[in-house]
Design a protein around this nucleic acid. Structure first.
Lengths: 338, 338
DNA sequence: AGTGAATCTGCAAACGATTACATCAACGAC
DNA sequence: GTCGTTGATGTAATCGTTTGCAGATTCACT
């Protein structure tokens, strides 16, 4: 049923020139005489010819696509970054290939890199065995959000600074007893945000209580779980900074369902500023990451690396911003500090 | 710097066989003598050979990837479906190519189909000019969530039924004055859910007031906007069914920020059951779509179409389910019906 | 020993583009 | 009139696989 699709040969035959000329007409129009060009273009139109990308890419020794490795596609945090990626990649003629590294059997990183099915790779998953990248010789790789020493270029925000801003904001609002819901263990984001928390607490002379540090994994459920832990505490922090908005949602939700009022009983700050948190009640105060911009810059830097055939390139640190909303208030009955 | 990557020739040379045998060893191991196979596999390991997918696909006349056209990557609703897609596509040896049809210049549908860079296409965006698909001759296409008559196969839920369930639930809880926040005009989902609302209202003998039908576009902001309209009404419905969870979030959020209590003052039902709504306060009662399953089935049906070289195939209607949570209560001060 | 089948392997032709190089015509300068 | 230059086109090699066909070997059976 599917009839033959036109090849460059068909166009050449129909317009009475060689395939070389057809190819040139399409990729370097200026190198072809105007009358020829017109004839060729007409033939292209008539046959409905569109170049076979496999053949083209084989010859050009490229793939025309960029691979994005995300830990969890279902997480809204990534989708907007991807959207930013796509917005520069598509115009640049690249396709966006997406792989969910958690759906996938683990340890496939090497496979993806070697497979040669992408001209470049954007990695969002810091839990991948990134050391393997050091010895790779081919596709340029850039990290987004995550990072790994100075070895690999990355586009990200200053996470420690973001965390510090969050803590300082709570401090300014009068809080002295501040808890933190962490991300998954071993993650650079987790470490870095925790580091920011510790630093700010230290600088501000706040108590460094480890029972106010709750384990999490950036997901909604772990936020709820942290809330349960908080509820079980006899000596509770009056404010909690969650290392992700998702966890903040889970945390606030579980607290409220248990009859605790936010921010009256406890203040909450998130991280990321995903779209929905502005619509929560109370709207969540959070540290915004410029996600679409992260996507765009990652795409731009990566595509520069591809063009210059370099395996490495500059990194970029993007600014975070405190978004004040309604989930933070002075602690319980106080207007000022003790 | 980037040294040569091993080709099938290198492997052939190293293992002392022809390229044909190497190829066979890799794709049809059973057709090769055991000793040869071992020698070849050793050479593969030693050279680190991995087949060039461009060459392979060129020869096989396929691309090895599936294209997903989503209206808006940043919408969490889609990400989980994509995740489901990926979970069957990856093991099946396909890559998942994703294009955001709103980021992209419009009218590119034809371009995507003709471009021949995918063996199959999953369309999530019903607002695309789908009529064009009728005349296409090549890549099999399946619609997900959306649909279009019987012409194209699709995987979706019974949207009208879902809406009806929502309305009937509100009715059972004692509501008689029920509003609806619609999706974007012209969308089949919008129409179908609206149709369900109308049918249920009719069957139950509820008032068919058009000023209780609010325009929306499935997004958060339009939910908030609908809330503003609701606030401005002098004669308000006691319950509102939103055609998407995102709109329900926006709606509830804006209402609560304006001092209206949900569900005490107004009950809200959503549609989709995206993850976050279980963590809202009140947790949102909603109609669940089995999103991961939608993704999986779409992938399975599409890949069957590809295997059988058919341009069409069966559709599938998946079940919806009412998830009762806390955003619905009997209307204002009533325990029973008037 | 001869025959046929079964099994394994290699040769070489695709797949459909791009592009280095060669060719050829036209032109102006000397 | 010769030579060098410029511009437009064609020839054919190349990218790295897969696979139809045929040759070679082995084996079983008569």
């Amino acid at each position: 049923m599917p009839q033959k699709v036109a090849t460059i040969q068909d166009v050449a035959r129909l317009s009475g020139v060689s395939t070389a000329t057809v190819s040139r007409t399409l990729s370097h129009p200026e190198r072809v005489a105007e009358t020829t060009r017109e004839a060729v273009l007409r033939a292209v139109r008539d046959t409905g010819y569109v170049a076979n990308s496999m053949a083209r890419n084989l010859r050009r020794r490229r793939t025309g696509s960029i691979l994005a490795l995300v830990p969890n596609l279902a997480n809204p945090f990534f989708s907007e970054i991807l959207s930013g990626l796509a917005s520069v990649l598509t115009p640049a003629g690249y396709g966006l290939l997406i792989a969910d590294t958690h759906t996938d059997p683990a340890g496939r990183l090497a496979h993806y890199l070697e497979s040669g099915l992408a001209d470049g790779v954007v990695i969002f998953d810091g839990s991948l065995p990134l050391e393997a990248l050091a010895t790779r010789r081919r596709p340029p790789v850039i990290l987004a959000c995550e990072w790994m020493g100075e070895a690999l270029p990355s586009v990200r925000v200053d996470n420690a600074a973001g965390a510090e801003i969050a803590i300082r904001h709570l401090h300014e609002m009068g809080h002295r007893r501040i808890g933190h819901v962490m991300g998954p263990a071993g993650n650079v984001l987790t470490e870095s945000r925790l580091e920011g928390v510790r630093r700010a607490r230290g600088d501000l002379g706040l108590p460094l209580r480890d029972d106010w540090i709750f384990r999490g994994d950036f997901g909604l459920a772990s936020g709820s779980a942290a809330a349960m832990t908080w509820l079980g505490l006899k000596d509770r922090p009056t404010a909690v900074f969650c290392a992700s908005d998702e966890m903040a949602c889970g945390f606030m939700g579980a607290l409220q369902h248990a009859g605790i009022a936010v921010p009256a009983d406890v203040s909450v700050v998130g991280f990321d500023d995903i779209e929905v948190v502005a619509h929560l009640t109370p709207a969540l105060t959070t540290i915004r990451q410029p996600r679409r911009l992260i996507g765009r810059r990652a795409a731009e830097l990566l595509s520069a690396m591809i063009d210059t055939r370099t395996l490495t390139g500059p990194s970029e640190l993007l600014p975070v911003e405190l978004i004040r909303r309604q989930s933070v208030a002075p602690p319980c009955g106080t207007g000022a500090s003790p």
